[in-house]
């Protein structure tokens, strides 16, 4: 009986010892695994710094404004459109440093209206300096051959002639940016460096048909700020345009509908893709500007899903009439 008890106790002790050892082994393995676990994943290349966001370039406390001027002479229509909003001095003050985000996506001549017209770049640069701007930077990220794009569109020459500084994209100008509530712009490289030294932002875009999104106007123009293999976003074009509108809070947007690309956009290529629509739009509200711009393409704003989506995200209003736009008929 005693032997039997001793044998039982030895077996019990042996079992407990073995169980404790097994438990410790498992705990050690789990701890080792946890120690190796990297919740952030592999780090980015050292040339890309993280943790930045674009500033809010809108004028604090200012109500949304919009002007629509009809005419063929861009120099005159942009001047009148600014005057209708109380003058560019209401947006650009003495000593301001201004960034003009143009559309220089293609190395095509100005006559094809696939890019921001140099005449408009020149006049807006001049107006900014007249209002007291200390510096005007003109930039875009065309990805393919930026030097040719800026040169052959005439944008570089126009900007420099008016005293502006042309900034071509370089690899170290990009920073990964995450937009709160965004699905696509998460840790995505964005052209950031030129924004560091400015306190005002004006987007200048032509009115164009677009094969994927239906239209390319002021909100789509911010697409040129994206780096990386941004072409993957074409599969979800309405979302990316919406998120771009969430990311960028401009001082002003200028939508050039003097000539609109009605078909075969966004590249066009033939003058027969264009229609003279004689309209210049200036607004503090990019959604409102695009909602009106859709009509120049014979489209309804409701047929462009990103307009309603951007409005829902608080980027502006699709009801441009609610801004009581100042409308000046043909000059």
């Amino acid at each position: 009986m005693e032997d039997s008890n001793r044998k039982y106790n030895e077996n019990r002790r042996d079992f407990l010892t073995r169980a404790a050892r097994a438990g410790l082994s498992m705990a050690a393995a789990c701890s080792l695994g946890y120690w190796f676990f990297d919740p952030k994943g592999p780090g980015r290349s050292s040339s890309i710094k993280t943790g930045v966001s674009l500033a809010d370039f809108s004028i604090p406390g200012q109500k949304p404004k919009m002007s629509i001027v009809h005419g063929e002479d861009r120099t005159e229509t942009i001047r009148r459109a600014m005057q209708a909003l109380g003058g560019i001095e209401g947006f650009i003050h003495k000593g301001d440093r201004v960034l003009l985000k143009v559309n220089a996506a293609f190395a095509s001549p100005p006559a094809l209206s696939a890019t921001t017209h140099p005449q408009l770049v020149s006049e807006v640069t001049r107006l900014c300096f007249k209002a007291g701007a200390a510096k005007v930077i003109v930039t875009d990220n065309p990805i393919n051959d930026p030097a040719s794009c800026f040169q052959l569109t005439g944008i570089a020459r126009a900007a420099r002639a008016a005293g502006g500084t042309v900034v071509l994209p370089a690899e170290h100008f990009f920073r990964p940016i995450t937009i709160s509530g965004a699905r696509l712009i998460r840790e995505w490289p964005v052209l950031f460096e030129p924004f560091k030294e400015v306190n005002r932002l004006i987007g200048i875009a032509p009115v164009k048909d677009h094969h994927r999104s239906g239209a390319s106007m002021t909100m789509k123009n911010w697409y040129g700020l994206l780096g990386g293999r941004r072409n993957i976003f074409h599969q979800d074009i309405n979302t990316i345009i919406t998120e771009l509108a969430m990311m960028v809070k401009p001082t002003l947007v200028i939508l050039d509908g003097t000539t609109s690309m009605m078909s075969n956009g966004p590249t066009g290529g033939s003058l027969s893709d264009l229609k003279t629509t004689k309209t210049m739009i200036v607004s503090t509200d990019q959604v409102a500007a695009d909602a009106f711009g859709a009509s120049l393409l014979d489209k309804d704003a409701g047929s462009l899903p990103y307009i309603a989506a951007a409005e829902a995200k608080g980027a502006g209003t699709a009801d441009y009439r609610s801004l009581n736009p100042v409308i000046i008929s043909e000059l």
């Binding site: 980015r44 890309i48 030097a147 990009f174 780096g227 990386g228 293999r229």
Partner: peptide, 18 residues
Amino acid sequence: VQSLTGQADTIGQRSPPV
């Protein structure tokens, strides 16, 4: 790798000077 280095790949594409 592409998502981490795509930036360098695309931005690095430059044509020789005009």
